[in-house]
Design a protein around this nucleic acid. Sequence first.
DNA 1: GCAAGGTC
Length: 602
Amino acid sequence: MGVLVVSEKDSVAAAIARYLGRGYRRFRVVGVPAYRFRRGDDEWLSMGLRGHLMDFDFGGELASWRRTEPERLFDAQPILVYRPESTRHVLALRSLAKSAELVYLALDADSEGEAIAYEAMMTIMPVNPRVRFLRVRFNAVTRDDILEAFNKPQQLDLRTVEKVFTRMMLDLTIGAAFTRLLTLSVRRAAGRANGIVSYGPCQTPVLSLVVRRALERENFVPRKYYVVSALVAVDGHRLAVRSERFEGREDAVAAAKSIRGSVGRVVEASFVEARKSPPVPLETVELEKRASKWLGIRSREALALAEELYRHGLISYPRTETNVYPQTLDLRRLVAELARSPFGWYAGRLLASRLSPTRGRSDDGAHPPIYPVRAADLPDVVRALGRHARKAWKIYELVVRHFLATLSPPAVYERQRVVVRVGGLDLVAEGRRTISEGYWEIYPYERIEDSPIPRVEAGATVRVVEVEVEERETKPPDYLSEAELLALMKRHGIGTDATMQEHIHTNVRRGYMNIVRGRCIPSPLGKALILGLNDTAPHLADPDVRSRMESMLAQISRGRADPRDVLEAVKREFRGYYKLLLDRLPSLSKSIAGSLDGGSPR
DNA sequence: GCAAGGTC
């Protein structure tokens, strides 16, 4: 019998051939890598796609921005077409499937995988109408998981396919309708012939988060406040202490005067042991946040570098929302492998202990967390990656250190707090002292420097040695950092692990914002767009539009809603917003056009 | 030329 296994990417196709067969041969069909092996009496083939084969688009008249009124897109039916860039994979798939009797759809075990499985099935059926299809689902590309999945084949989940296709149609319809409307009217108002003013249910809420913070910062009015700071003598130590805030200078001065040269008592002295747990296994968004915060590498570049490292077999698949190691992952073997790396001094030590990894709470069902696969040093990475090597090494190092940290003990430190009361005034000193470094030793990014205060006893007498009033000012919030933005996107459910950094980048590409030293600074255009939308149809820029849409879509895969009903309901909602925009279009486009002085949309 | 989601 002839059997074909279709997976989402070449790396998985190769792994399947390796685990299911006893030896395999790699070959190419129309340039696409494929694998041949025997299993029992059967002849098996395995090939990987490159994600989706198909996409929705507007055809004919609907493709014309000028001839079609954008609002008409809400009534139109987008068509499913093959992506031009997947031609070779379509041909290869048909060629390999032509004589198969059974096709295993071994795409990733997530929603997109279900849709891609359907696309593969649609592609094969015309050339081989009698073939049987089975769906296999595994949530880690390990021998055990894959063997088990093939022992328990399942059926394609058509409801999930419908959910994904509905989302694709909605995103296209909504994105195209608003982008065309905004673009054409802003061009008219600005007297320009080019430039795009886009709207999207992910990109625009992201921009809205950035603008919101920028406005908070720019509208911030600093306020002066005062604190009494003093140096007190206690038990032969000197201790720097500080009062709470005073709104008025006179009150602070009076309080300072009242304690000058006075004697008081320690009313609280707590020196308590506290622990900081090591991080949970690494998922994409965390990698991006940490790279931005600690390495100064932007999310988009961090993911691109991680992909390079993955392609060179140095780390596991970098697009994942899972932060729990699968049971089947041999952690000890990985640590042993890392013992040969520049981090071997630490890995070797871990090997001597029992390995108990931290664990998070999310599992995307398709990929394990990001972990190092192979030991490498800087020269190895330079040989493999060439010109990107320096930054790639920093990412690799982060992945290795993070992995080892998840297997390490917590950091233990002493949290110190002393309150002295002089007259009626409480003054506080806080400090900390490390007791045991724990995972900080391999994960210095999170290390907190010691700032110990002397150990004193409650009840001890204190004498004020020096006292002064400090004038301070409340500080405006900083622009949103990229790491904060990623965290907010995750919280609001905007985008996926693989796309979050793209939504940020789309805003940069469109000229809506810039990232300067890790901070997101909106441009006048970006601000004008968000302020304009907030004035006319605020729901369009609401950080929660995406998650509301997603929860409606989820009803489809749960079998609780008909896909056509969801499609119509969401379109009706957005068409309502479209009408609101139309009503105020002249002033909206004028204000956006006005923001373009000196800059232009891209 | 529009979006967001896969993959490289």
